[in-house]
Design a protein around this nucleic acid. Structure first.
Lengths: 327, 327
DNA sequence: ATCTTTGTGTCAACCGGTTGACACAAAGAA
DNA sequence: TTCTTTGTGTCAACCGGTTGACACAAAGAT
């Protein structure tokens, strides 16, 4: 015997007015006497009335919801990024519908398809899948972060190439002779590859041979460890490593210990990302920091513009190197 | 001149059938000839029809949305927890509406009020605020994680008291004579205090005087560092620290370095949480691990039961200590 | 005395799907 | 022949707010 929820009509009856009047009180529009307002509010209070958001959304054709599609949230970089996005969106009156693709194209597609059904007013994506045709033929406002999704989707990115240069240059300045890089397998589309390209270009310019070991974001930790051990086994001469993200840099530092390498004496390490959580747990790491919060702010600003029907173009934000002690 | 979105009626017209028939094809209910199905599907394809989720929700009175209210997502513990929750919920056909309270009662209340308006089918909360009366007088299914929200809200918790015992006992077993603890200020309601109580009880039993330094989750990192430095200044004799979370344990380890303490020789450290990200960045930390993924699974299962109208009661899950090298 | 302006409130259509009730035809059963 | 079952499809009410159109009264302007 669950009581039916109170609806606007019930309030109207209780207050002795019409639906319209109640709605007007709710939205404070049109002419209203103080007496009427008081009467209606008393009735709402008495019945503990809660307006049905869905009904309003149906009529208004807007949900004040924004979808976020990223690989995961259980990671210092994405955690901070989505956290910052949520904050910015909330400030502008939007709530967040979160979907973690786990780099699973199936899940991403299903998620996307559902959101496209007028569930959200806009979308911010940073997942690593491609060839998801749904992105192409929709008119929903979309902003992408660090990822090229489709020709018509503006991108907010940090300057990955320059970040790669900064990291590599640092190791060169430190006098490293054998610098190795870790990055995604090349068939996974991500802007991280820009970091690799910079590393390769700069290394070649200095007469060194670039060597990249491929570690995928989704590899289980044990596999990542195995790949890193391989580095030390294949290249005992290594004296500098540029990791494409801080988590890998952390793993590298641990495994360097296993191989009795002192950091920074025997081995210099530069990471990438510079997220809050990593800075706390691994402050000694020298790393290229992305302006995560700023990226979030810019992305939300751009999305808002698109929702308002304005045109926006892609933006690239600068990175900087943070000195720890590892390089 | 934005074209109006295609609606069910348009598809019906295109296919030469009625709305009902199209709806039936969409939901595969009632008797339908193959010919009809094909006809309708061709029409949907041709018009690129997307059903309006909001309209369906309004009629069905369910949104297949679950709200998540936690302090933040930018933290290894909450990141992993929310990530696991999202996964479990997705498996059951629910999408996630995320709200970070930032331990800001204002934001939490506003968020909650909006979700209560029939926006979500259920709620999982783990925010640290109290006295939010909205939780009390609603019939929305709610499950709380590690937090007592209201008499009628079932809780999923890990065995915090036992976790406190495990951590403290480990330090005692290591022969520590001066064990200090960090935890929230006592006026912030969190189950972490159970960990403190266990520490106090056990320490007293062993004739030691419990000393707790208060570090709030929301304190800026610099403040946290300051408080931790204070520990070493006030109690140079300290030889064991039980931190109420791994992030603080990480900070403690760093600052121990500043004070020239070797870990574990001069100082033993035990953390709390054992989240994935921390295990990767700080594997050497001995810590009490919460069964984060299991907590998420149980919470979702309980929520599903409540949504189905069943009664559920609170559950407590066991913790275990993970051996690193710091204690 | 007539015309506007301001204040208060009502009616009914609308947003876009969903579904119970019902109509009608063809096939099989009694 | 008549009754039941199966297959196919239509009608219109419904979910719960929102709002343009409109009615009517009182006050102020000309």
């Amino acid at each position: 015997m669950a009581k039916k929820p109170v609806k606007l009509d019930d309030v109207a009856k209780e207050a002795g007015v019409s639906k319209t009047t109640v709605s007007r009180v709710l939205n404070r529009r049109g002419y209203l006497s103080d007496a009427t307002i008081a009467k209606v509010e008393r009735a709402m209070e008495k019945l503990n009335y809660r307006p049905n958001a869905i009904a309003r959304q149906l009529y208004k054709q807007e949900t004040k919801l924004v979808g976020l599609i990223f690989p995961t949230i259980d990671d210092p970089f994405f955690g901070q990024l989505e956290s910052a996005l949520e904050n910015e969106l909330y400030r502008r009156g939007y709530k967040v519908l979160m979907g973690n693709s786990q780099n699973n194209p199936e899940k991403e597609r299903s998620f996307l398809r559902q959101l496209l059904n007028r569930q959200v007013d806009g979308l911010i994506v940073g997942a690593h899948n491609q060839a998801i045709s749904e992105y192409q033929r929709t008119t929903l406002p979309i902003i992408s972060i660090e990822q090229i999704v489709s020709r018509n989707v503006p991108v907010v990115a940090s300057d990955n190439y320059n970040g790669g240069l900064l990291a590599t240059q640092r190791l060169l300045d430190d006098g490293c002779q054998h610098i190795i890089h870790t990055n995604y397998p090349e068939d996974i589309p991500t802007p991280n590859h820009e970091r690799r390209l910079a590393y390769e270009d700069l290394l070649r310019k200095h007469g060194q041979i670039p060597i990249t070991y491929h570690i995928s974001f989704d590899d289980p930790v044990e596999k990542k460890r195995r790949i890193i051990r391989q580095i030390f086994e294949d290249h005992p001469e290594v004296d500098g490593i540029f990791a494409d993200n801080d988590t890998n840099a952390g793993l590298i530092m641990n495994i360097a210990g296993e191989f009795k390498r002192l950091i920074p004496e025997d081995l210099r390490v530069v990471g990438y990302d510079g997220a809050n959580a990593t800075r706390i747990l691994l402050p000694q790491l020298t790393t290229v920091q992305q302006p995560i919060n700023q990226m979030a702010a810019v992305a939300v600003e751009m999305l808002q513009s698109r929702i308002n029907g304005e045109k926006v173009s892609s933006r690239m934000l600068p990175v900087k190197i943070l000195d720890g002690g590892t390089a």
